[in-house]
Structure formats: C-alpha cells, structure tokens
C-alpha cells in the first residue's frame, strides 16, 4: 500500500464552554489510535504546534456571538474540506442564545460594571447560519460515541450512523422505565433527538432536551401533553429555553408557551 498522507484535523472554538472539544481528549481509549489515522494539525487546546491549512476535517465548537467571529467562521470554512459542528452551541447557538430572547444591553449591564468594554452581537447563532455545514453533532455536550462515529465515518468515507430519532427509542433500547408514564415526570424525550443514550431517564429525571429537536417533533401535541402534566406556561417556556433555545422547533415551542395565558 502506498504511503498516504493522513487527513488533517483542525478543532476550532467559538463561544462555548470547551466541553465538546474536551470530548476529543476524553476519548482516552481511542485518542492515540485516532492520532495515528488523522493528523491533529490545529487544536489549540491540546497542542502548541499548529500546521497551516487547508484542513481535511474541521470540528467547530461554539456559537457566533461577535462580528469578529462571524468573519472568522468564514475563514475556517474556506480552509476546511469537511466541516463538522460539535455541540448545541455550534448547532443552535447554545445556552448563550438565551440573549436572542432578551435585551443584550441589559445583559451586558447585568454582568459587567463597564459594559462599554465588551463587544458582542445581539444574538448567538449556530454555525450553519453563517457557512455551509457538512454534519452537525448535537448535544450539550456531544456524545463521545457519536464524535468517534463521525470521525470514523469521515475516515472510512461512509455515512455516519447518527439517526434523528427520538430519545424515547434509545430510552427503551436501554431498558429504562418511562419516567412520564410511570412517574408523571415531565420529559422532553418524545421531542428530543437521540444520541445521548437516554441518560436522564436512566437517572430518574426527565430529558431536558440537550440534543435539540428530533427529526419530526410534534410540538403542539407535546405542549398540550406538558400542560396535562401540570406544567405552567412559564415552566414550559423555561423547559424549552435552555441549551437549544434557538433551535427552530424549540423556539416555536417556547414562544407558543409564552403566548399561552399564565393561569389555567
């Protein structure tokens, strides 16, 4: 077999908590084998050695919240053959997209005594709102298994196994008892995309939607169901306004809930 140049990997960070890129380093069992198959060419958090682009695979973490970052993501795209976003921030703006529902000026003043020093955009947006994205890995944080699957599929030039099914299907495959039906615990599982392994129900709590909406969520029916479980409109609004608040289906859900009368 002729010597083949290893594909080059770059990891980029935008507004985020670093958790998703930490997932790369959390691949304790696979990290060194992975480094044999793919050249870690630009990964600031892990290495001070940087190989210039272009890159074969770019993993992008975080959301765009500044004018500078809106420019930088276009530069990243330009030097990336395949661009994969990792995590809720990069997909839908992350928790910092809560600013999209509020007055950023007020936010800036709430945190900083000298707000004029802080430069920021009024919104936090996912990467695909700025540049074409080849694949999105959901989750806050992403699942290590899905990250490995995506990279492995990239290396094998195959389609990754990343279904957009509901959390419920994973939950049942895992053998959890449904927390909604058996305990009346509100759970976003039916409208949330699988991928996490249905961890929350396995720990007796309802899914909080950190993988964003599933492929075909029925939001109106879910809202009625949530009300039946006794959730108030502000509670429903909060449930959808967390880590994927700006994902279209969840945004619609929180806005519909917000439009509901408060008392029932």
């Amino acid at each position: 077999m002729p010597a083949v140049r290893r594909p080059r990997l770059a990891v980029w960070k935008f507004a985020s908590c670093d958790g998703c890129q930490l997932s790369v380093l959390d691949l304790e069992d696979e990290l060194l084998a992975l480094a044999d198959r793919i050249e870690i060419a630009n990964f600031r958090e892990a290495s001070s050695a940087v190989v210039d682009g272009p890159y074969d695979l770019s993993l992008v973490e975080g959301s765009v919240t500044t004018a500078e970052d809106a420019k930088r993501i276009r530069e990243v795209r330009a030097q990336s053959r395949v661009l994969v976003t990792i995590g809720a921030c990069a997909t839908s703006g992350g928790i910092q997209a809560l600013r999209n529902f509020a007055d950023v000026e007020e936010y800036r003043r709430a945190v900083y005594a000298r707000p004029e020093y802080i430069e920021t955009l009024a919104t936090s947006s996912g990467i695909a709102e700025h540049v074409p994205v080849d694949l999105e890995l959901r989750g806050c944080p992403i699942s290590k298994a899905q990250l490995l699957e995506a990279v492995s599929a990239f290396l094998g030039q195959r389609a990754p196994n990343l279904p957009n099914d509901s959390v419920c299907i994973e939950c049942k495959r895992r053998g959890n008892v449904c927390v909604v039906v058996a305990h009346g615990t509100p759970c976003l599982g039916p409208v949330t995309q699988a991928g996490c392994g249905a961890i929350c129900p396995a720990f007796h709590r309802g899914c909080y939607g950190c993988f964003g909406p599933q492929g075909s969520p029925n939001i109106p029916s879910f809202l009625a169901h949530a009300r039946d479980l006794g959730l108030s409109a502000p509670e429903i609004r909060r449930v959808f306004r967390t880590f994927n608040a700006n994902a279209p289906a969840f945004r619609v859900a929180s806005e519909s809930a917000a439009a509901e009368p408060e008392a029932r």
Partner: peptide, 9 residues
C-alpha cells in the same frame, strides 16, 4: 396525527 408524538414508544 395531531396527537401522535412520533416518539416510537
């Protein structure tokens, strides 16, 4: 279809 969540349960 209006009620079904397509959750697979």
């Amino acid at each position: 279809a209006r009620r079904c969540l397509s959750c697979t349960n």
